[in-house]
Nucleic acid binder design. Structure first.
Length: 295
DNA sequence: TACGGACCTTTC
DNA sequence: AAAGGTCCGT
């Protein structure tokens, strides 16, 4: 089907290529013309969320979405129900220091992917890695998935498929040591119940889900929080990596600047965000993180 | 608890 | 050298 979603407060580049989701493509509909006024509009985004594919174009500033899903599926993925203006107001009210970080990232939204299995394995690709390499890796994993209908799009493979993929095969595809950790984590997940187990973590609460995840070798604090946030939809999860740690030190804890992020400090920073921002802890972290990345 | 190294590979 | 870490030794 085809529809026009509201486009205000939604920056597709910021949302789709910022490391919240990893499988989207951006291509030019027509070759760029030097100095052309509309070159930013002449793009097409293609991607998959769960069992739905999406093609998004924006001629004339207006979004056109084609999909095998519904308008509701699109709205859920981009959280169009969330009032970003109000969220920004609440965050700034709780922390005036955040005003500049929020203003610097218009159209950035917390994504809400529908397939927790894809999120689980995508973030296993991100450890000690960079986005330029992460995205091709996630796409390679997705090649193990089933095509969606007769389209070139594929659903992300199920846990069982990843669990039975040999380490050597992934290493040959450039996964490095993650060629071992990814199938291993899949095997542990299979023992606990596979896809259903991963999905069931949405029902057990943030603390319990997090405990389960970090008990898997290869998933530490940061990956567990990413999976909790993007895959399991726990908005109180605050993934803290080196960049957010630096940004948090600069903005909130100048006395910690330059110190390493220990287990203890990891917990303290997460609690700080939850105390200060409540349900908006992860939104606050998102703005701070990407503001810092842009520096 | 906290600190140092190792870990695959690619990219800046 | 560092990358959106994590594990394993001290």
């Amino acid at each position: 089907m085809r529809f026009h979603p509201p486009a205000s407060g939604l920056d597709l580049d910021r949302c789709l290529f910022s490391g919240q989701v990893f499988r989207w493509e951006r291509e030019r509909v027509v070759p760029p013309v030097p100095g052309a006024f509309r070159e930013d509009d002449d793009v097409r985004y293609r991607g998959v969320d769960g069992e739905h594919w999406f093609e998004i174009t924006r001629p004339e500033e207006r979004l056109i979405v084609e999909t095998n899903g519904s308008e509701g599926d699109f709205a859920r993925l981009f959280r169009l129900d969330a009032d970003v203006e109000e969220i920004a107001r609440k965050i700034v009210a709780a922390a005036p220091e955040m005003a500049r970080a929020i203003e610097s990232q218009p159209g950035l939204r917390m994504m809400r992917p529908s397939d927790p299995v894809e999120v689980f394995f995508s973030f296993l690709c991100t450890a000690n890695n960079h986005l330029k390499r992460i995205m091709p890796m996630v796409r390679k994993l997705a090649e193990y998935g089933e095509p969606i209908g007769t389209t070139p799009f594929r659903r992300f493979p199920r846990t069982q498929v990843i669990a039975s993929t040999p380490e050597s095969e992934l290493r040959a595809k450039g996964f490095g040591y993650r060629g071992a950790t990814i199938p291993y984590a899949a095997q542990v997940a299979m023992i606990r119940g596979g896809d259903d187990w991963i999905r069931s973590l949405r029902e057990v609460g943030y603390e319990e889900a997090r405990r389960e995840l970090v008990s898997i070798k290869g998933i530490g604090n940061k990956l567990a929080d990413c999976i909790c946030l993007y895959g399991l939809h726990y908005d109180e999860a605050v993934p803290i990596d080196t960049h957010l740690w630096q940004a948090a030190c600069r903005t909130f804890f100048p006395e910690h600047t330059g110190k390493p992020l220990t287990e203890l400090r990891y917990r303290q920073v997460g609690e700080f965000f939850r105390d200060r921002f409540g349900d908006l802890a992860s939104w606050a972290h998102l703005y701070l993180y990407f503001d810092h990345m842009g520096q």
